[in-house]
Simulated assay, not measured.
Amino acid sequence: MIHVLFVCLGNICRSPMAEAVFREMVKKEGLENKITADSAGTGDWHIGKAPHEGTQEILTRSGISFEGLAARQFIKEDLPKFDYIICMDAENLGNVRRMAGYSQTGHIGRLLDFVEEAEVLDVPDPYFTGNFDEVYELVSSGCRGLLEEIKENEKLY
Results as ranks from 00 to 15, higher is better:
C8K: 10
L147S: 12
D78R: 06
E152H: 13
E29H: 13
P51G: 01
I2K: 06
I35S: 12
E119F: 10
M88D: 02
R110H: 07
A118T: 15
V21D: 09
N153A: 15
K27G: 06
R23V: 14
D78V: 09
E77P: 02
I108M: 03
G54R: 04
R23E: 06
K81C: 11
G101M: 07
V115A: 09
S103L: 11
V96N: 06
G48M: 00
P51C: 04
I86T: 02
W45H: 06
E67L: 00
G142T: 05
A40W: 00
L138Y: 15
V139F: 08
E53L: 02
G94A: 06
N131A: 13
V115W: 07
M1S: 12
G30E: 05
L79P: 04
I86C: 05
G48R: 01
P124G: 04
M88E: 07
T60E: 14
E91L: 10
E154V: 04
N92Q: 07
G63L: 00
K155P: 08
D122R: 12
L111S: 10
Y102S: 14
L121K: 15
W45A: 10
E117N: 15
I86D: 02
D122S: 13
H107I: 11
V120W: 14
M17Q: 10
E24N: 14
H46T: 00
N11Y: 06
I85K: 11
G41M: 03
G54W: 01
N95T: 10
R72D: 01
L112E: 10
F128A: 11
A40C: 07
D113A: 13
Q73P: 14
G106Y: 07
E137V: 15
R144D: 14
Q104E: 07
I12W: 00
L31P: 05
D44Q: 11
L111Y: 11
G10D: 05
I58F: 08
R14Q: 03
G145D: 13
M99T: 13
I12H: 01
E53V: 00
A100W: 08
K34L: 11
N95H: 12
G10P: 12
I64L: 04
N153W: 03
D44H: 14
N131I: 02
S65Y: 13
V21C: 01
V21I: 04
I47W: 02
T60S: 13
T129V: 08
R98K: 14
S39L: 01
M25D: 08
F82M: 08
K151F: 13
D133E: 14
G106Q: 05
H3Y: 01
L31G: 04
V120F: 13
F6D: 01
L31Y: 02
K76Q: 10
E117G: 15
E29A: 15
D78G: 11
P80Y: 09
E152Y: 10
V139T: 10
D125F: 06
T55R: 01
F6T: 07
I150L: 10
I64V: 11
E24Y: 02
V4L: 04
G48K: 00
M17V: 08
F6G: 00
K27A: 09
A90I: 10
Q56M: 09
A20K: 03
K81A: 15
N153M: 11
L69D: 00
F6L: 02
V115S: 14
N11Q: 06
S141D: 12
T105Q: 03
D122L: 10
D113V: 10
P124Y: 07
E152P: 13
F82E: 09
D44I: 06
I75E: 14
I64R: 03
I35A: 10
L9D: 03
L138R: 14
K49P: 00
